[in-house]
């Protein structure tokens, strides 16, 4: 699976270029609000939020340099859905390296996604986001299209 495949699961409505929350719980709420607002088939905000919070208990998903990948499976979604968000100021998301997190790629999948499509998507994203210059361009991208072009480029 490559980045172009991953991007099929997101949309301009699932892009939050300027997160306002300043701490981890607040960011999780803002991300979930974005999912509900941006996806016509997701309505159960509490269920999604509780699942993502539980997933963070397993270990912080802020594993990339300045990047977090909150993810998990929930009955509240019907298909793999990807939300992309950005915090200009950065947030303490309990990252592995102790640095602030600026970019968020949220991947949520239904329980019956047996092909583990979302783990493959996670693999494509975590690999791509290792690139320092790319992350810089993503921070500067003006809109969703510019963001995706940078992310999808080689």
């Amino acid at each position: 699976m490559d980045i172009a495949d991953v991007l099929k699961h997101t949309s301009p409505d699932l892009f939050l270029p300027d997160l306002q929350a300043t701490d981890k719980p607040g960011v999780l709420v803002e991300l979930v609000q974005g999912l509900v607002a941006g996806s016509p088939t997701i309505s159960k905000q509490d269920a999604v939020l509780q699942m993502l919070e539980s997933r963070e208990a397993l270990g912080s998903t802020a594993v990339g340099p300045g990047v977090a990948f909150p993810h998990g499976r929930t009955l509240a979604v019907q298909k793999l859905t990807v939300l992309i968000a950005r915090s200009k100021a950065g947030v303490d998301f309990d990252s592995v390296d102790g640095e602030k997190t600026h970019l968020f790629f949220v991947l949520i999948a239904p329980p019956q996604d047996s092909g583990h499509k979302y783990i493959k998507s996670l693999a494509a994203l975590t690999d791509r986001l290792q690139d320092d210059a790319l992350r810089q361009r993503l921070m500067e991208a003006d809109d969703f299209d510019a963001f995706c072009t940078a992310l999808g480029g080689d």
């Binding site: 269920a47 509780q50 699942m51 539980s54 997933r55 208990a57 397993l58 270990g59 912080s60 998903t61 594993v63 990339g64 990948f69 998990g72 499976r73 929930t74 009955l75 509240a76 592995v96 329980p111 583990h116 783990i119 996670l122 693999a123 975590t126």
Partner: peptide, 25 residues
């Protein structure tokens, strides 16, 4: 949902750890 995520950490744990995820919790 929590049980699905537990099962995934158990069954796909090696793969997730290779991607850098810490499953200590």
């Amino acid at each position: 949902d929590i049980e699905a995520n537990i099962r995934e950490a158990e069954e796909q744990g090696e793969e997730l750890k290779e991607l850098g995820f810490n499953l200590d919790g």
